[in-house]
Design a protein around this nucleic acid. Structure first.
Lengths: 225, 225
DNA sequence: AATAAGTGTGAAGATTATTTGAAAAAGACG
DNA sequence: CGTCTTTTTCAAATAATCTTCACACTTATT
């Protein structure tokens, strides 16, 4: 299991990123300052660090520089759009990539995967989700029902993965929008309904596994109850 | 002029090996880490890599594995006597030979010549990729569809090899640019689209194996899920 | 049973990404 | 230096996806 460390001084941002990443299948720890980050790095030995640049006290660059004196762990910088910062400096200090806020869950996980792959640390083992005749390959984003391939769009795929990974858990439309669409989405919640509809249709008989929880949201059936 | 790349984290060892090899008439470049090695590989396109196994961060095995996903360049491992390492693993990861430190200049050049000779006689190691009626011979850079030769340009060939070697894996345009074009490329990502277009056209019906992953990038079909 | 609130569905419209053709730019080669 | 090939750029056309909306339908409440 890949273990990530999120470093940001804003608790809200930490919570958001953590949610994104946990849904993508990562184990996530967090730190609210550079000092805490270095402690947790030594203690927990994560596989990658997501490091905010703008922090009170020691900023992300300083933290990166300190870490680089004793560790080669991959570091991805986070920076708010419009913030003054130096891309060249980020890389010259040993950063491996950078992500500009606001970012979508998809972009974030794609970049993390790319960096981990570059480092060879992620054993690119094939990760799949299976439920009866439904088979989902997360990395190649391929879906099969009864052995035949089903073409899903990006949102549809992210939706079914989120639901199927958390069987039995009920998601409100707002939760689904926040996790799959991202925080910057400003539209109606009925959009979710439409995507659920097409998903059910495309997944044929397996579509019945997506259940409506009246008045609350949707869930993927949990076979254990 | 044969061009070698020496990868070792110890500057002294790099200097020593470089001296040996330059005296033997080779052009020598060096890298002090796996990341640097991959950058220089793309940039300088050496003929052979001498790769130290014991390095902090990514060790030689990890670097070799990463390189093998897109390149067939001969790799000779370097290892210190008494170091714990697995000869079988070295070869299974795609290594071509190994040399135990300390070594004499004579031993080193002899082994390099042996490996280069083995690779030079293209019939010796014929590596091919096959998918239905598509046949790719990596060393002669020849491509056939339905038994008839297809003329690909350099970029087109590198692209199809990268994609076909990693079936099912989704590559973003940025990743493709970085791996095929190299890190110093500074142009638009639409260039990739154009090359994909001509590839699909030239590969005729096999062109359908290159699938668009909408909103993310491209992948070569993987029937195996 | 009547009512209110929530959900399903099909179609249309808006949005975004990709494909494609053509042409310019950059290299390769004699 | 001109010619040929390869690579890159660009914008219009196409295609895929996402969103909205109206209306039918279902479920819960009184």
């Amino acid at each position: 299991m890949t273990h990530l460390l999120v470093v940001d001084d804003e608790q809200d941002m930490v919570d958001l990123v953590t949610m994104y990443l946990e849904n993508a299948g990562y184990t996530v720890s967090s730190a609210l300052s550079g000092e805490e980050a270095e402690e947790k790095l030594k203690e927990l030995k994560p596989d990658l660090i997501l490091l905010d640049i703008m922090m009170p006290g020691r900023d992300g660059f300083a933290v990166c520089e300190a870490i680089r004196s004793y560790s080669d762990i991959p570091i991805i910088f986070l920076s708010a759009r419009g913030e003054e910062w130096d891309k060249v400096r980020a890389f010259s200090l040993g950063g491996d990539d950078y992500i500009v806020k606001p970012f979508s869950p998809g972009e974030m996980t794609a970049r993390i995967q790319a960096v981990l792959r570059r480092f060879g640390s992620s054993t690119d083992k094939r990760e799949t989700i299976q439920h009866q005749t439904l088979l989902i390959d997360i990395h190649s984003r391929a879906v099969k029902v009864d052995g035949t391939a089903v073409g899903l769009t990006m949102k549809e795929f992210d939706l079914i993965v989120l639901l199927a990974k958390n069987r039995g858990r009920i998601f409100s439309r707002e939760e689904l929008l926040e996790t799959v669409w991202g925080t910057e989405y400003r539209g109606g919640t009925r959009t979710v309904d439409t995507h659920i509809k097409t998903l059910r249709m495309k997944l044929k008989h397996e579509g019945a596994s997506i259940e409506t929880v009246w008045g609350i949201g949707y869930k993927f059936v949990d076979g254990t109850i």
